[in-house]
Design a protein around this nucleic acid. Structure first.
Lengths: 101, 101
DNA sequence: ACAATAACTTACTAAAAAGTAGCATAGTTA
DNA sequence: TAACTATGCTACTTTTTAGTAAGTTATTGT
């Protein structure tokens, strides 16, 4: 199942903690993710019921992602992981989550 | 680096929270792990400074693993993950950590 | 001599995850 | 009519992770 144990999932969930976000903006916040991995990952998160996907039928397309209740329930874990990375990484800083998941 | 983001790492760390454990016993607690993955995984955890390895020069060999301070600092994260799995899994129970990392 | 023991290694294979590059859609605006 | 937009799809390759099965060590008890 791998609900959150991949390279990008925790990062995406973390960035959605602040609130819903448009696809393009969310992708921009995730530094280094390829377009393919981005859509693939959000699709899996959606399938697992951790995020929701709202499509607005306009041109050019507009899509917004948000955490579901189940996704929200990961908040404390995500923040703990982030915090642990901060505390632990004082020397080599490589950005959020990058060194342990 | 992947400090804890693999199939077996969080599980091994979790079982060491209770205290140091002899190699064979630890391995027994991790249901389904192959001998190869077990030693490979503890070696990586040791290299990353999350657990320590004490070798007693007796025959047959005796090796004990324990969390280091750095490993201990993951306690709340590991417990949160475990707890989240419990809460989230009320229907399909598959064992600790198995469904999200 | 030889099987038993606990911890570990090695060679090989299989499966999963991630990366690269290019294509599709369909109105809008120049 | 042609370029532009935001989103995401597909085919393909590479890298990483995991699994299987067999072998190694060094002493002890038979």
């Amino acid at each position: 199942m791998n609900l959150i144990g991949t390279k990008w999932k925790p990062l995406i969930l973390f960035h959605l903690l602040k609130g819903p976000l448009r696809s393009g903006l969310l992708q921009q916040e995730i530094e280094g993710i390829s377009n393919k991995m981005f859509t693939q990952t959000v699709r899996e998160l959606e399938k697992d019921g951790l995020i929701s996907r709202a499509v607005f039928p306009v041109v050019p397309p507009k899509v917004e992602y948000a955490l579901t209740q189940r996704g929200q329930s990961l908040e404390s874990i995500l923040k703990s992981l982030d915090q642990w990375g901060m505390d632990d990484n004082h020397t080599i800083k490589q950005g959020r989550f990058c060194c342990y998941l």
